[in-house]
């Protein structure tokens, strides 16, 4: 992995900003766009996975207990998972 886009100087860029390393968009931290974060009450969770299906960022994964949880490196805090959850597991809380 090369330098992140926060460290590169103008002299280190490829011509026209061409990206030569496939798949490096995954390094981009979209999580810092977030103003609200999802919080979970897993006691109510049916493990149905609807939150994973609806997540537009594709950042919801099952943890080792089988519960669905957003990866906060990517989660933009849109709240769609919270709205769609049939058992009201997910509450959006303001980021401090």
């Amino acid at each position: 992995m090369g330098k992140s886009e926060n460290e590169l100087t103008w002299k280190e860029l490829e011509v026209g900003g061409i990206v030569t390393e496939p798949g490096n968009a995954s390094q981009y931290k979209t999580g810092d766009w977030r103003s609200q974060r999802p919080t979970y009450d897993f006691n109510k969770c049916l493990k149905c996975g609807i939150c994973q299906i609806y997540c537009p960022e594709g950042c919801v994964n099952q943890n080792n207990q089988g519960y669905f949880e957003a990866d906060l490196y990517y989660c933009k805090g849109c709240g769609i998972c919270s709205r769609e959850c049939p058992t009201f597991v997910i509450t959006m809380k303001e980021e401090e």
Partner: peptide
């Protein structure tokens, strides 16, 4: 030898891209 052109640039890199172009 795949490359990506015309990429997205957040504020953290746009200035460097434009200065490289101007220079």
């Amino acid at each position: 030898k795949p490359v990506a052109m015309g990429d997205f640039a957040p504020p953290s890199i746009y200035t460097e891209m434009k200065w490289a172009q101007e220079k």
